[in-house]
Amino acid sequence: MLTIGLIDNFMISRLGLSILLNNYYQDVMLLEANNVQEYNILFGHHTPDMIILGNNSNDEEKCLAVARQLKKLNPDLPLIIYDEHLMRNLTISYFRIGISGYILRQNTAEEMIPCIETILNQKKYLSPILTEHLLDSLSHNYGEKTPKRRPILTRREIEIASYIAQGMKTSQISAMLGRKASTVSSIKHNIFRKLNVKSVTELLDAFSEFPF
């Protein structure tokens, strides 16, 4: 049985997500609560497979504090966050404290199941919308002494980097784009070389070095 902690003080959103999960998974137990404190009181003795947290505030510090609290209490559990508002500066901070998936509330119907499945396969998931915003910041270099923006990644490299950031393998990207695997591998090598990174985690970390 798949057991998922579901924390969201928006009852309607929680109900919709509950219906979505119960319709997709034949055998799932949902541990539902309005907030972290209530969850710990009701289900502190349970060990779910993952926890899903809905953030409704536009206060970045508050959202990050709640995520930190959950990770401190459940350091080994995968944590998925879906935010009401697009707060790009939070993306890097979230992953640095150890979350496993990040999407927007408006896309939960389309992305929550793929996000969960990706995490069950021990990978991280970042919404394509958020990935696009982050990678767009990498397409230009803002030098202090350079008045004009200088491209870092080409449009094709940005596209492939977005797939890499989502955890896709070279063979999957190759099939999706209709390109040879060797071509995709070469582009991936160029992306990592240009950004001076060696892994997907470092690729995400590189975003923090560029303004949003």
Rank of each mutant, 00 (worst) to 15 (best):
Q106M: 05
T170F: 01
A181F: 00
V184R: 06
R193P: 00
H133S: 04
G44E: 05
L42R: 15
Y125I: 02
M112G: 03
Q69S: 15
G167H: 11
K124R: 13
A206F: 01
I164W: 05
E61A: 14
V200D: 01
D136Y: 13
R96L: 09
K72Y: 04
N34Q: 11
K71T: 06
L204C: 04
F210S: 13
K123Y: 08
T131S: 14
S182G: 01
G143D: 11
S127Q: 08
F95Q: 02
Q166R: 15
I41L: 12
V66A: 12
L53Q: 12
I191N: 06
D49C: 04
L126M: 11
M176T: 13
M29D: 12
L2R: 14
I4T: 10
E110V: 06
C115Y: 02
N121I: 02
A67S: 15
G178E: 03
I52Q: 03
K71S: 07
K124H: 11
I80A: 02
P78E: 02
N58K: 10
F210D: 06
E84I: 00
R150V: 15
Q106S: 13
G101H: 07
T170L: 09
I80N: 10
T183S: 14
I52H: 06
I113H: 11
L126H: 05
G44H: 12
M29H: 11
Y25N: 07
I19E: 10
I119D: 02
S100E: 09
H45W: 00
S139A: 10
P128Q: 08
P128K: 05
N35M: 01
N22I: 05
L104P: 10
T118F: 01
S137I: 01
H133A: 06
L53F: 13
F95R: 01
R156E: 12
P78F: 05
I80M: 09
P75T: 08
Q37L: 08
L203S: 05
P75V: 12
N40T: 14
R179K: 15
L126D: 07
S174T: 03
R155S: 13
V184G: 06
A67M: 07
I7Y: 10
Q106A: 08
N40C: 11
D76M: 12
I158F: 03
Y163G: 00
N22L: 02
S127I: 04
R179G: 00
F207M: 08
H46G: 00
N34A: 04
N107G: 00
F207G: 00
A33S: 15
G178Q: 02
I119R: 08
R179I: 02
L90D: 10
